[in-house]
């Protein structure tokens, strides 16, 4: 499922930074750690605050999903002069019905997850709303792959 254009421009520009960060699944003890690291990195790269916050937000939601639903995963960050690309790849239960999972308010979160204020069925919607390109694919029993792209040059209100 793609949001926006399905062009290949994303892979054309050369990376000025690229790295993978492991995320522990099944626990919230370190939740947000990778997002914080990525926020600090992008801030040091002198990207605008809005771009940094959008990247931090989509990374955070993806990280929380790995903590909530996967056994383990990783977040891959790629920065080019034009885009920040965040991919979240996990080994986990996968999503049975992606269209349903994308609906605002739909959640399969357990009581334990909801008690902490997660699992409101907003995570994937936030990711979609705050990225310029978004793709999700998933396989039951294998895992889920999210790709989010944020355009560095684009002015984006509301964050």
């Amino acid at each position: 499922m793609w949001k926006g254009l399905t062009t290949n421009v994303l892979s054309h520009d050369a990376a000025i930074y690229e790295n993978s960060f492991p995320v522990e699944g099944g626990t919230f003890d370190n939740a947000g750690h990778v997002s914080s690291q990525i926020k600090a990195l992008l801030t040091r790269m002198k990207l605008s605050k809005k771009v940094v916050r959008r990247a931090a937000l989509v990374t955070y939601e993806a990280e929380i999903n790995i903590c909530s639903y996967a056994n383990r995963g990783r977040i891959h960050l790629r920065v080019t002069p034009e885009h920040v690309t965040v991919e979240a790849i996990d080994e986990g239960q996968g999503i049975a019905d992606i269209e349903l999972a994308m609906q605002a308010g739909y959640s399969t979160a357990t009581e334990r997850i909801r008690e902490m204020g997660f699992g409101a069925g907003m995570g994937l919607c936030n990711i979609k709303n705050f990225s310029d390109f978004f793709r999700i694919s998933s396989e039951i029993g294998k895992g889920t792959h999210l790709k989010m792209v944020i355009r560095i040059d684009k002015d984006f209100d509301g964050i």
């Binding site: 914080s36 916050r53 955070y60 204020g117 997660f118 936030n126 705050f130 964050i159």
Partner: peptide
Amino acid sequence: LSDVMANSKEGDLWFTRQIHQNIVA
């Protein structure tokens, strides 16, 4: 937390009843 992530702004004071460590992130 997702609501706060999406709708709060820089410089906001955030009021919550949550007390676990994820509020810091």
